[in-house]
Nucleic acid binder design. Structure first.
Lengths: 225, 225
DNA sequence: GTATATTTGTGATCTAAATCACACCTCAAT
DNA sequence: ATTGAGGTGTGATTTAGATCACAAATATAC
């Protein structure tokens, strides 16, 4: 009883280039599923057989490291999920988990491949998006390794405010531990640093609610590491 | 007086899908340049106007971080250089520098774009390569942040031996400082750790010459962080 | 509601690696 | 050969952040 792709208002940028016929083809080879917070959408180590498109919601991409499960990225809808892991390897190289209630469309991979090999504009758009993603990963990786905890934490708070929620007040969708896995710090360091920020009047914390009070200061901390 | 693309034996995997006509078109819109060790091929912050293809040699990709210039990757020929930074942004988001004498073909971006929009097989191949690259970056980033210096160093020594030189004896193309920027450690830590490895009989060092003596041990150190 | 489990805050240690400091190489240029 | 400039090795010191430890707060189940 789900929306068909032709009339779906939450399509990907690339799919704007698909024809009516292609969209119908997609609609007939696609399943829409709802995931609750915490549900696994793609699991590292399993076969990747479908292209996943996040229609609504918020997810984390994460990968087993030698010590802990590292969160490589937070992605909000609309967005394809894990194209690299779907096309780069038969086996999923990372996991995707919902951190808020999410709706995902699973598109048959063969149908998706015919779009790629037949519709140059579609493919070009995907190509550009992949390039952008890789640039962002590079930047994130450099920052993550060079900044110290407060800088990385500030950067990620700003990311949630600016990119994800587009508001300076939001509910952090991660536990302190998970937030640590995103910024590469221990649970305790995250907790301490957030407390420090609050003491300095930079943010206001109430459990998972976070309100940014001095954005300029946070930006400075983020920038200077 | 350089080789024309149609007969070039060092073409990219993707270009195998180009027709004779397309290859001729490429040959007519392409410049081949030689770079010495240390020469800058792509500079972060400048406009990206050509697609760079590394025909011969070895390069490092590096990016300004808040503290130092981080080496994100070592790439050997044959390989496109910085497709993400060429297509993802008008301005180059990272630099590429030769670390051994290299030959690079600069292909006109508009010509390259016509391949992408007209030749689906070519584009699909590029797409797959981008996906693979992103998976590798993810893995590298996770390892880099979670492993400690000895683990990261071991990993990168193995990378040079297995992927770059395909030999257990090779000349490290980086200074200790640069090697540090690749593994996220200080010059001193790199030096110390290499000495430790030598003392344990795992490797033999003579200046920049490195010979791996106990590969299994190095693999263990790499794996266990 | 009470009980149990999970998440969180905060102080007290501990530690890997950065930084500092300095001597010694190596190599290029004069 | 002599000068100078990077590059390198190694000890001593410092430090950011991990880890340990435990209490308090929340969430979840019964």
């Amino acid at each position: 009883m789900y929306e068909i792709c032709t009339t779906c208002g939450k399509r990907s940028a690339a799919s704007k280039f698909l024809s009516e016929v292609e969209l119908e083809n997609q609609a007939n080879n696609c399943v829409e599923l709802k995931f609750n917070k915490g549900d696994n959408i793609i699991r590292q180590g399993t076969l990747s057989s479908n292209v996943a498109f996040l229609k609504e919601g918020l997810v984390k991409l994460h990968m087993k490291g030698p010590l802990y499960e590292q969160i490589t990225k937070i992605t909000k809808a609309p967005s394809y999920l894990g194209l690299p892991t779907t096309f780069g390897d038969k086996i999923n190289q990372y996991s995707v988990t919902a951190i808020e209630e999410s709706i995902v469309c699973f598109i048959d991979m063969n149908v998706f491949k015919t779009f790629i090999t037949n519709n140059p504009n579609f493919t070009y758009q995907l190509f550009i998006e992949l390039c952008l993603n890789e640039l962002t990963s590079f930047r994130r990786c450099v920052n993550r390794t060079q900044k110290q905890v407060s800088g990385s934490l500030a950067e990620n708070l700003l990311y949630f405010a600016n990119q994800i929620y587009e508001s300076d007040e939001f509910t952090l969708p991660l536990s302190r531990e998970e937030f640590g896995n995103l910024v590469d710090a221990s649970r305790e360091s995250v907790s301490r640093t957030l407390s420090d920020f609050q003491e300095d009047g930079i943010i206001k914390i109430d459990k998972k609610m976070i309100k940014i009070l001095k954005k300029d200061k946070l930006e400075m901390i983020s920038k200077n590491g």
